[in-house]
């Protein structure tokens, strides 16, 4: 067979993700795409526009908003939603706190990261979403390596890692009972590098905080954290200015920033290629214990 009948690895991953997104639209009544403003969910939004072109994306984007955002993320979010012509729903952690559904953490390591699970599960129930599309990738973290594309959640939103449905060929089983839902991960087979390379070949706009910029930071446990009013400081912690960029984008209180001079996507790709620490190495939320991610996922985290 002639060589022209093959596609590159990025186009194959793209085709696989689009297939999954169309499968979601076909198999579920009321899906939603979880949008954080991070690069993975941006790629998901981008792929969604492509999957249903020229139709509108048949599901809304939902942002679980901790209230502790980089300003740039929110600005970007509103612009991006217009670009891909999607509908946005915001589920607020602040509201969950106000309603007494969750209590704010205290002390130096206080973060709203863990609180998001309740807000997310409440929002899924309120909007009667039966499927939440997420940008998680199997290369991110060891518990994610065994996640399925179509991941079943029981009526409590919990994941049962030892009892997952086998997935074969391109056949996906989204059957469920009332009250249960699915998490679907179209980027399962992508690596951090694939995501950046795809952003490069597609010229996808990304939030400015991914590029190097001057920012007030504090150093804690060997990580740099962006300074913000939401961060509880120890007396001996110093605020300094550094040239940094974000490698992941999450809640401001637990997302590390990196010293970097990367000013373009190509710079970032070069940097990722040379980096010897995983992107989640900068996430305080994953460092709470060896199985922090698995424990949170079982309860219904992203």
């Amino acid at each position: 067979m002639m060589d022209k009948y093959y596609i590159t690895h990025l186009r194959e991953l793209e085709s696989e993700a689009v297939y999954i997104l169309r499968e979601v639209a076909a198999q579920f009544e009321n899906p939603a795409l979880l949008f954080s403003g991070g690069k993975d969910s941006i790629v998901l939004g981008w792929l969604s526009r492509k999957a249903f072109f020229p139709s509108k994306i048949p599901y809304p984007l939902m942002h679980v908003d901790t209230g502790h955002n980089f300003d740039e993320t929110i600005e970007y979010r509103d612009e991006f939603v217009k670009t891909i012509n999607a509908r946005l729903i915001v589920a607020s952690v602040q509201e969950s706190i106000d309603k007494g559904r969750v209590a704010e953490e205290h002390g130096k390591h206080a973060s709203r990261n863990a609180l998001q699970t309740t807000t997310l599960l409440d929002a899924l129930e309120e909007h009667k979403f039966d499927c939440a599309i997420g940008g998680a990738r199997r290369d991110e973290e060891k518990a994610r390596a065994k996640e399925r594309f179509f991941s079943h959640r029981d009526e409590f939103g919990q994941w049962d890692p030892k009892n997952q449905r086998p997935e074969l060929w391109n056949i996906f089983n989204g059957k469920k009972n009332m009250g249960e839902h699915f998490r679907v991960f179209p980027l399962s087979n992508w690596t951090e590098m694939d995501v950046w390379q795809y952003i490069a070949i597609e010229n996808i706009p990304i939030p400015s905080i991914y590029f190097s910029h001057k920012r007030k930071v504090i150093e804690r446990d060997g990580l740099l954290l962006a300074f913000s009013p939401y961060l509880n400081l120890d007396e001996d912690e110093q605020i300094e200015e550094r040239i940094v960029r974000c490698r992941t984008v999450g809640d401001m209180t637990c997302t590390g920033v990196w010293e970097s001079k990367a000013e373009s996507i190509e710079d970032i790709i070069q940097e990722v290629a040379a980096t010897r620490v995983t992107e989640r190495g900068g996430r305080v939320d994953d460092k709470r214990s060896e199985t922090a991610m698995e424990d949170r996922k079982v309860k219904g985290y992203f």
Binding site: K142, A145, K146, P161, K162, Q164, N189, E294
Partner: peptide, 17 residues
């Protein structure tokens, strides 16, 4: 990957790398 696997030293499910 999974806690129970590391505890038992066996692989119980397909893992993707």
């Amino acid at each position: 990957g999974l806690k129970s696997e590391r505890e038992q030293g066996i692989t119980i499910d397909v893992a993707y790398r």
